[in-house]
Simulated scan of single mutants.
Amino acid sequence: MAAWLPIAARRISGDLLLVLQTNIPDYEVWERGALELPCFENATSITLELEGLGLTMPPSGIFARLTNLQLGCIRLRGPSMLGEAVSSPRCPALQKLTLSGTSGLGNLTIHSESLLEMTLTRVHGLQQLNVTAPTLKQLEVLSCFTKGRMILILPVANISAPQLESLMWWDDSDPKFTQLGKMENLQCLSTFPFTIYEETDHVRELQNSYCTRLLRRFELIHSLRFQLVNDLEDIITNQQYLMEDITGLPDITFMFLDITGNGHSFVPSSFHLLRMCTGLRKLSLTFCGTTIRPE
């Protein structure tokens, strides 16, 4: 791979799709070191799925035509910062950035004049996220500041995206640590699933607080995607009802309501939300067999 990639970088003028499948144990993958990604000056789209192999970003060069970059199951290594490589000086045409199941990225700082869509899913170990993207329309951040069922850190995020229209934020949204900036054009919001009854799972309680914090940030949104979850498998007896923690919703006209009831009644919890939606004009109900959460 190390020998082949530079050859490909000189020849490719369109799309690169590279998927590695291996049965090598994780500890052996880590010991094998890392590949250095060459600068693909003429590539328009790069998708890498490396099954946990290490990858270092090129220290120099310009991805002049790159509009789409997707990195999955990659251990980012080396001194070169990913944020520097995908920012406008070196990626002047980038429109879509997707990171999924990556590790080794503690700080992601991006300054992009062209970026339109950005999706971060399970970027393990992320401690700081700084995004300045005046044209960004869609942002999704899912389980980047958590690992499994343990909360690792308080995230430090600073997002400047004044043209943002769609936000999915499934992570901590404490205003002390998460600065989302002015999003006056926001049309669609999606929050962490809300657990209806108290559980012994401390992580679920934190996720409920993330959900309510995010809702309090906005007064007017066209559409809201909200998920109600009842994970209790047994009969509900002395469990505390948590819906009263939601004291208000943004002024919305369209709600996507996803419900995971596990055989329990969802009517009281649903009505609790709908009573707050005095301007609602359209409702979409989806009944799910299992909880919708990123693993």
Results as ranks from 00 to 15, higher is better:
residue 139 L to D: 07
residue 143 S to F: 06
residue 143 S to T: 00
residue 143 S to A: 02
residue 144 C to Y: 11
residue 146 T to H: 10
residue 146 T to D: 08
residue 147 K to E: 06
residue 148 G to T: 10
residue 149 R to G: 09
residue 150 M to S: 13
residue 152 L to T: 13
residue 152 L to F: 00
residue 152 L to V: 13
residue 153 I to P: 00
residue 157 A to I: 15
residue 160 S to A: 14
residue 161 A to Y: 05
residue 164 L to M: 15
residue 164 L to E: 13
residue 166 S to E: 12
residue 167 L to R: 11
residue 168 M to T: 14
residue 168 M to Q: 12
residue 169 W to G: 00
residue 169 W to S: 01
residue 169 W to L: 15
residue 172 D to N: 15
residue 172 D to G: 03
residue 173 S to E: 05
residue 173 S to W: 07
residue 174 D to M: 11
residue 175 P to H: 14
residue 176 K to M: 08
residue 176 K to W: 01
residue 177 F to M: 08
residue 178 T to R: 05
residue 179 Q to W: 04
residue 180 L to I: 14
residue 180 L to K: 02
residue 182 K to N: 07
residue 184 E to A: 03
residue 185 N to K: 11
residue 195 T to A: 05
residue 199 E to P: 02
residue 202 H to L: 08
residue 203 V to Q: 05
residue 204 R to K: 07
residue 206 L to P: 00
residue 208 N to H: 02
residue 209 S to G: 01
residue 211 C to T: 15
residue 213 R to I: 04
residue 213 R to E: 13
residue 219 E to R: 04
residue 223 S to P: 00
residue 223 S to E: 15
residue 223 S to L: 03
residue 224 L to S: 08
residue 225 R to L: 09
residue 228 L to G: 06
residue 232 L to W: 10
residue 234 D to M: 14
residue 235 I to S: 10
residue 242 L to R: 14
residue 244 E to H: 14
residue 244 E to C: 05
residue 245 D to E: 15
residue 249 L to V: 04
residue 251 D to I: 11
residue 252 I to H: 05
residue 257 L to Q: 11
residue 258 D to R: 14
residue 258 D to G: 01
residue 260 T to P: 00
residue 260 T to N: 04
residue 264 H to Q: 14
residue 268 P to M: 13
residue 268 P to R: 13
residue 270 S to D: 00
residue 271 F to T: 07
